[in-house]
Design a protein around this nucleic acid. Structure first.
Lengths: 342, 342
DNA sequence: TTGTACGCGTTATCAG
DNA sequence: CTGATAACGCGTACAA
């Protein structure tokens, strides 16, 4: 007996074979497979019997060549793989996507940007591999992602880059409102020296959360100079937090733009001997599993991550089905989850 | 201007179109596209110019129909999606896989088991969608996964189920040795009442880690009754830890079969007012990011998760290339990483 | 209701 | 070295 690639594998049965076994034409078998209503019930049974006997499964390549559909969609992530795979937020998004896809016949292709993202990804997308695309974690300077939407039905996770087609479809949360929730809370619990660790300023979520934060602080007449930029990673946030603390030693509150970053900030706070929330209160963003299990359980702005993934997939599937009534944007709610850190 | 699915999208150029534009036959264009050496250099240039001008990209369905190859592989995960997406261990595996795939022309299809895993997944795999499969997180009773290996080249992540083809290919770590490392360490630091929270006993990793643990304890003449089974989730581990503590109140050490489970155990230990490692020492398994950032940084058995994903993909790609010299198993090393918890 | 025949875009075999 | 031409497996007008 042999194994692996060299093993002789039997050629899968074709429509032709089933037709012969059932004593009908290929077309009829095709109709049965595709549940056409115009086939006599008894013939349906005969054909299905043959299909079961031969263990027939339609060849997808042939089918998509003929039908010009692939029944596949791509998840495009123009992002450093380490960051994508390191943040539970993305896991939740993907989970939501697969949950929706499980209810359909569509399958998911994962395209995480490599060194040569634009070229390879676009090449892949343009070669008719997928019927549509889901785009997540895009940056303003990722020119090629805006091209994707011109090539095939696409849904962005988060507000699309500024230069994207204004008719783009996307699912988002109100990042501004979410950040305002966080800032408001910190003010309400009496904090007066409030800082923030931001996400990348070339990403909508990074910008919007900063703006919401600023807006609330300004309205309250609180100083807004305690700002440090980071990159949505724990280590990046740690570095930024050190900078902030060096600059503003009397900070008594911190809004960190993601839970993952908050864990990095907590590490630094701990290392500086600061008590939480005693010396300094912390509010995160995401309500990822990290928040609940953190050193000091995190007060955080909750967003329906899994739900967003689900909504994105759902929107794309509707688009693919030719549904004319699909809204161009779906904005999902955020809420503040109170835990120990603030 | 219109948008979305209804938008008129131009038909992509075909081989035919390029041939016409270049004034050669389709066959020649095909040769150029596939870098056949038997084409006159000047013709190659002409054709490439036409390709560039028309922005031609080969249609994958047509190509795979003709060549009987898909340039795609599937990652099959016969597991509850919540668990798959909740454990950083899997993120690392997937990252390793994509890292290897990025160096190739292959792309990845994600198949996380749904309610009807056997049927839908097998159907998908058998319809000629992928050239090979990577199987991760399989349980002994997942009969269908062992079938996959009979249908196409496959590589398991972890020892295959017992009833799998003995010639199966897989990448694994020495779970027994890893667990022995952990147990040995707990004994060495003077612990005498050592318990363990195991993984599922229908999974190779769960079984092997338990056995390694038991082997070392028995050899040292230490009691082996402090065992509670869990399911590789944080909440499952928390429950198991409560049971164990209720039964063995004087336990002074705990070997938890995964870092994610260890975070669940830590929560319970904290809730019982136990100091770590003072009252009870804890050793995890994986060395996932969770370990370093845990409440009490975790001493843990480190395994090269990303490396395993890479190795799996590499093994499968070699299999697909017809490489006869591919070893049937690759066992990767583990080591103990000392932190604060033990 | 069912069968015939052509087309989908490539690859691959053969002549030339 | 290049060009016809036949597969590859399926969907689908069109005809019966």
């Amino acid at each position: 007996m042999t194994h692996g690639a060299r093993q002789e594998r039997p050629t899968p049965p074709t429509l032709e074979a089933v037709a012969e076994a059932a004593g009908v034409s290929r077309a009829t078998v095709s109709r049965v497979v595709n549940a056409s209503p115009t086939v006599r019930p008894e013939v349906v049974d005969i054909v299905n019997a043959a299909i079961g006997k031969l263990n027939y499964v339609p060849n997808r390549a042939a089918r998509s060549l003929a039908s010009r559909q692939t029944q596949a969609i791509a998840l495009v992530v123009p992002e450093d793989p380490t960051r994508f795979f390191g943040d539970p937020y993305f896991a939740a998004i993907v989970q939501g996507i697969t949950r929706r896809l499980d209810e359909s016949e569509y399958i998911l292709n994962l395209l995480v940007a490599s060194d040569d993202p634009a070229h390879k990804a676009m090449r892949y997308l343009r070669s008719g591999n997928v019927d549509g695309a889901l785009i997540v974690s895009h940056h303003d300077d990722d020119e090629y992602v805006t091209d994707i939407a011109t090539v095939m039905p696409s849904v962005f996770g988060g507000r699309p880059p500024n230069d994207a087609d204004p008719g783009s479809h996307y699912v988002d949360i109100d990042n501004i409102a979410g950040a305002q929730l966080a800032a408001r809370h910190l003010i309400d619990i009496g904090r007066t020296r409030i800082g923030t660790i931001t996400g990348p300023v070339d990403m909508p979520a990074g910008i919007d959360r900063l703006n919401g934060f600023l807006r609330t602080l300004e309205a309250a007449g609180v100083a807004t100079d305690a700002i440090e930029n980071a990159d949505f990673t724990a280590s990046g946030a740690a570095t930024a937090t050190r900078r902030l603390l060096d600059r503003i030693p009397d900070a008594d509150a911190l809004f960190v733009a993601s839970d993952l970053m908050a864990t990095g900030a907590l590490t630094v706070l701990r290392e500086r001997g600061l008590s939480i929330p005693g010396d300094i209160a912390v509010v995160g963003f995401d309500d990822s599993p990290l928040a609940a299990s953190a050193d000091v359980p995190l007060t955080t702005v909750s967003q329906p991550s899994t739900g967003m993934g689900f909504a994105m997939a759902d929107m794309l599937l509707r688009l693919l089905s030719g549904d004319e009534t699909v809204p161009h944007r779906t904005i999902m709610p955020t809420r503040l989850v109170l835990r120990a850190s603030a």
